[in-house]
Nucleic acid binder design. Sequence first.
DNA 1: CGGGATCCACGCGGATACTG
DNA 2: CAGTATCCGCGTGGATCCCG
Lengths: 143, 143
Amino acid sequence: MTRLCTDNSIEMCRDEIVAGYRQWRERTGNNPHCPVRDVLDRMGDKWTTLIVITLAERPHRFSEIHRAVPDISRRMLTQTLRHLERDGMVLRQVFPTMPPSVEYRLTHLGESLLRPLAELIAWADGNHERIMAARVAYDAGSG
Amino acid sequence: MTRLCTDNSIEMCRDEIVAGYRQWRERTGNNPHCPVRDVLDRMGDKWTTLIVITLAERPHRFSEIHRAVPDISRRMLTQTLRHLERDGMVLRQVFPTMPPSVEYRLTHLGESLLRPLAELIAWADGNHERIMAARVAYDAGSG
DNA sequence: CGGGATCCACGCGGATACTG
DNA sequence: CAGTATCCGCGTGGATCCCG
């Protein structure tokens, strides 16, 4: 599972995913801990992606992120940043000024996530209308 | 936001994400409903990705998926399949046999998700060890 | 300014039992 | 076989207050 799906063939991607999944199951037996879920759980939570996108532009201070990401509470901002820092995606840098000032920036690992993330965002953006149309059709049929 | 980030430059991906995000905010004002989150929320839930990967190989019957995806309850399997069907990602086909037989398969839309998904899986697989190492280091530092 | 601590509501998801 | 219905625990995340 080290190949990258860089060409345009859906079949190649399917084969890659299927083969990779099969290999992982054979390697790990019934190990319930899947590295992919480890990542997807983070991506899927409420704030991680927005924060990563915000930090993609440039380093931000705590309050800057708080202003840039609408409606996030300080508690969840702190918690999400801690998770990202723990996973090596974000670097936290404290300046011992008064009042204190803390800067957050993406690490190289964090920046490397931008590429697959951009793919996913492009897909979501490009197929959002199709999905909404499918929902309308589904709800009309079973309504 | 229709360009695809197909080359290797992190900078291009960053610019694309940042610009796309800015454009979306300008278009929608403070609309809290983000199409990207719509997708990521699904990807992040506990079972969607596993089911999509399972169906990527070939169509499956309900019980086949149930056997292929370890530990999922029938309730969550039904629920997740309904969500995927509603979003136009999965096609549900009932054969009026006795006992009943139902087949699920990916639609074209569902298959088109495989490409960005493969990218993300490759990233997760390729960087999992780095992430685990970062966690160990973090936990040791603040232990 | 940049948090930590505490309390609480809500919804996801598991367990179990039942059905056409 | 392919679901549906019901109950319930637990974790996520919001609100509020406190601190260096």
